[in-house]
Simulated scan of single mutants.
Amino acid sequence: MGVHQYLNKALWSAIMIAMLTAASGCSSPQADPNKQTIPTDSDQWQEQLKPTFEQLSKSDQQLLSRYMLRMKLSEAYESGAMPRTTIEQALIQQREYERLHPNNPTGKKSPIVTSQAAATAQTYPVALLPVKTSDSDSLNQVKMQFMLSNHGNVAIQSFKGTLTMQDAKLAQGKNFNIPLTQFEPLVEPEQSGKIIIESSIEDINVMRAIRNTKDMTIEISKGTLVLADGQEIVFDQSMVK
């Protein structure tokens, strides 16, 4: 065999070995999603956790979603002292919480269901996330953030209507008009979607109520939920108890 033939054969063998090594031997193992740390800033959850979230099983996705909603409705969220934990620890905590509170997996106070209309409202509860306003009790333009939960069997596609806030400090309920909100992604069963509006708060008592959400309730007083299968859930004033 000539020198050139020998060199060509050796070069070709080296290339083949390099290609096989790149294809099979050099890929790094995928990180365990359960070891991912949940950001203490909940506004970063969707952006930073989405790739990891998609690696979880469907049941763990729903469990983690309920944990996140429970954390957002907790005093820790309001005080800014969100706990640092891993997804694995969050799932363990949520399983134990749901074992102790099987009828209230997100920790939200719920009114007694006394009618079919109330049962429908209970299937799609709304919570107000804590609002940060200015220090002065004057006219304020604030960003209101609501969490719409889906305890039904079909994903929610959109909502348009009016939310009514009730509180012991208020002589009458405060209404918030919600323009057509398309949820991207859809609000799957046992998950929650965020509704964000800008609102002018003119009543000092309203401002005080939204700073302390413990005794305050939010309900859909009228409007329409459109589900992923085309079904429409219609609410009206008769559903407000």
Score class of each variant (00 low, 15 high):
V3C: 13
Y6P: 02
L7S: 00
A10W: 01
L11P: 00
L11V: 06
S13G: 13
I15K: 12
I17Y: 09
L20E: 06
A22K: 06
S24H: 14
S28H: 11
P29E: 08
P33K: 04
N34L: 12
N34I: 04
T37Q: 12
T37E: 04
T40L: 03
D41A: 12
D43I: 07
Q44G: 00
W45D: 01
Q48A: 05
L49G: 01
K50C: 07
K50A: 14
K50T: 12
F53K: 08
F53M: 11
F53L: 09
E54N: 11
L56M: 04
L56Y: 00
Q61D: 05
L63H: 05
L63G: 03
L64C: 07
R66C: 01
R66H: 08
Y67M: 10
L73I: 14
A76H: 10
A76I: 05
S79A: 13
G80V: 08
A81Y: 10
P83S: 05
T85F: 03
T85M: 10
T86R: 03
T86N: 04
I87G: 06
Q89S: 13
I92V: 09
Q93K: 15
E96G: 01
Y97P: 03
L100T: 08
H101G: 03
H101D: 01
T106E: 11
I112Q: 09
V113K: 04
T114E: 10
Q116S: 13
A118K: 11
A119T: 09
A119D: 14
T120W: 06
Q122T: 07
Y124R: 10
V126Q: 00
A127T: 06
L128R: 01
L129T: 02
V131R: 00
V131N: 01
K132D: 05
T133M: 11
T133N: 02
S134Y: 05
S134K: 12
S138R: 15
N140I: 11
M144G: 00
M144L: 13
Q145G: 02
M147V: 09
M147E: 10
M147W: 02
S149A: 12
S149L: 07
G152T: 09
G152M: 06
I156G: 11
I156Q: 08
Q157M: 04
F159L: 05
K160I: 01
M165I: 09
M165A: 02
M165P: 01
Q166Y: 07
Q172M: 15
N175I: 12
N177A: 15
L180P: 08
L180K: 12
T181I: 09
Q182V: 14
Q182M: 14
P185G: 10
L186Q: 09
P189H: 05
P189R: 04
Q191F: 02
Q191V: 07
Q191M: 11
S192T: 08
G193F: 06
I195S: 01
I196V: 15
I201R: 03
I201T: 09
I204W: 00
N205H: 03
V206H: 00
I210T: 02
I210N: 00
N212L: 04
T213R: 05
K214G: 01
M216G: 01
M216E: 04
K222W: 00
T224V: 11
T224E: 15
T224N: 06
L225R: 08
G230P: 02
G230D: 03
Q231T: 15
I233S: 01
F235N: 05
D236A: 15
